[in-house]
């Protein structure tokens, strides 16, 4: 089977193994309707139990859930320096809630953001923040419900790596990266707006 992974502008083999936590015992109670700061959408984070019970391979390149990474950070020093550890986050997770616990995010060769439903546009703001506010320079990968018609926006929001949903053709998706030639506004990939860089 051909690869589903696009990095920059080509389809490449995936060297990374995505680590998933075990399912939580109990469904986290929805907060919908309640006014709880940052939990307006009622999505829960991993429980301590889930974090402790997440199993991952002892060698090779692995992408760990942020919570799992933080939990094992100290023991993983060696593997981090070997560029074997990447992290992934959900779109409802706060970058601010973990960024200070990571020494230097540029020691991580890969950060992935999982979009559960393609229409969840939070992923664009997360990409923007990681690149521009937190100055993350390495591979930034979109995983989950990643489809052709959102790739152009993902690219403009700082993503350079896209794991296309398994049932879709990555070659077809590749075309989505070039839907528009010269957009108006400055974003992550092209920081200056069009009027500053071309004579209009």
């Amino acid at each position: 089977m051909s690869s589903q992974l696009i990095i920059n502008n080509s389809i490449v083999d995936d060297e990374w193994q995505l680590v998933m936590p075990p399912k939580a015992d109990e469904e986290v109670k929805k907060q919908a309707g309640k006014v709880v700061m940052f939990k307006l959408t009622g999505e829960g984070s991993l429980t301590n139990e889930q974090i402790e019970n997440t199993i991952f391979s002892k060698n090779g390149k692995v992408i760990l859930p942020v919570g799992v990474f933080l939990h094992h950070q100290k023991d993983l020093k060696n593997r981090i320096s070997k560029q074997e550890i990447g992290i992934w986050m959900e779109t409802h997770e706060e970058i601010d809630s973990f960024i200070n616990e990571i020494n230097d995010i540029n020691l991580l060769p890969l950060i992935s953001v999982r979009v559960k439903k393609f229409a969840d546009g939070r992923i664009f703001s997360i990409g923007n923040l990681l690149r521009l506010k937190y100055k993350y320079k390495n591979e930034l990968r979109a995983i989950g419900d990643v489809l052709r018609d959102q790739l152009f926006f993902l690219k403009r929001s700082g993503f350079n790596s896209f794991h296309i949903r398994e049932d879709r053709d990555a070659k077809d998706a590749l075309l989505g990266l070039n839907d528009f030639t010269t957009p108006y506004q400055g974003a992550v990939d092209q920081k200056q707006p069009a009027w500053k860089i071309i004579k209009r």
């Binding site: 546009g121 664009f124 923007n128 959102q150 152009f152 957009p183 506004q185």
Partner: peptide, 13 residues
């Protein structure tokens, strides 16, 4: 012009 195809705000709530 700024809001047309603004990548970050392509899929708002």
């Amino acid at each position: 012009q700024w809001s047309t195809f603004h990548p970050e705000f392509a899929l708002l709530p």
